[in-house]
Nucleic acid binder design. Structure first.
Lengths: 203, 203
DNA sequence: ATTATCTATAGATCTATAGATAATGC
DNA sequence: ATTATCTATAGATCTATAGATAATGC
């Protein structure tokens, strides 16, 4: 093999990697970084423990890989907020995208929540390097809309925090939400949050 | 000792129990149920491992004791919501109490969040037996205010969820909040949330 | 020939106990 | 006398490796 040529991963290799990462998402999001064991990963992936360690150097590498992939997914909906769009429409669309993610990607939401809850030991650099610049940019956009009188005056930072917290709540605190509201209340949540932010931001 | 007479715990016993539980709150909230080790508990409490097990039958009992105590603390601010008070004042006061708790009891907030995040394996019965009835009662109170035209029409359940999520966010996602907003932003949070719920609930 | 997988197990970490000793309260 | 604490370590659990075998791709 020539110098510097990357070894092309086989199709089986790629498929098994995905299999392991998907199993790991389930296990890590349900039991936490420390609660997850190689036994559980192997069981969930339908592989032996040594086989998992053939694909990843260890439990920690699997976890870190998962979190790195997640960061991109997590930034996407904020990136889509369009400075040239209608301000109110853009905000409500962002709320809806985040709520869709709470519904469709609850394991990812809980994985992220667990990491932040414990002080972001693995993700802290990502937060500073990737999330912070995007956050600042979008805060600037929102502040611009406020200054132009197109949104009611608010602190953009806290607006974004409240959008994150209210939407992710339905994924992260799912058990509690179920106990308290009986049914799966995502339709009601959508109506409520739409009203909440519409009233908040109307000039 | 007569039949059925409880053995009176000595003063040292009570003090050491508290010492252990306080250390455990720090360790469990920072590392999760599985991430916390007896070594860390002993270190944090300044005691030997066997001494800790002299006071509690094991790690699990310490964790459960912590969560049981927490449930009461956690219900308190909701219990204070007064059906005879002024509706808007009561709602905003509740928001402020919850935000005070995020500031003053962040470890408790994170301990609770971690437990719910992992499906409430220990607290689920408490949620059903203690939280649900109180939640339903207060939802009824809020619905009464809405029906009487004293609050704007909203679903009380989602209102409460949004108060919980927006306030606890400042404790549970503290690291992220710090990275993104630079300073400790609790004064700004108070103003923002006051405005948010005032606009939401104004008739 | 190389890649992918397994069984068996070594080594590390963590929980909990055995057994001895010191401190406290009648 | 009882309560509280310690050192040393047994036993359980978990991560990772050794070494052999099966499957895949030139």
């Amino acid at each position: 093999m020539p110098d510097g040529a990357a070894k092309k991963p086989s199709r089986i290799h790629q498929r098994t990697r995905h299999l392991i990462l998907d199993a790991a998402l389930a296990v890590f999001s349900a039991h936490g970084s420390r609660g997850a064991t190689l036994d559980q990963l192997a069981e969930a992936a339908g592989l032996s423990k040594p086989n998992i360690l053939y694909y990843f150097s260890g439990k920690e590498e699997i976890h870190v890989t998962l979190l790195n992939q997640l960061m991109e997914t997590w930034l996407d909906p904020l990136e889509e907020m369009d400075a040239d769009g209608d301000p109110m429409t853009e905000q409500l669309a962002y709320v809806h995208r985040k709520l869709d993610m709470a519904r469709d990607l609850p394991r990812e939401s809980r994985l992220f929540a667990g990491e932040i809850l414990q002080g972001a030991p693995r993700m802290h650099p990502h937060l500073v390097a990737d999330l912070k610049p995007l956050f600042d940019e979008k805060c600037g956009v929102i502040q611009g809309w406020v200054d132009a009188g197109k949104l009611a005056p608010i602190d953009p930072r806290h607006l974004i925090f409240s959008i994150w917290s209210t939407t992710q709540h339905y994924a992260d605190f799912d058990v509690q939400v179920r106990v308290l509201s009986g049914d799966t209340p995502l339709e009601g949540a959508r109506r409520y949050l739409d009203t909440l932010f519409r009233r908040m931001l109307s000039v």
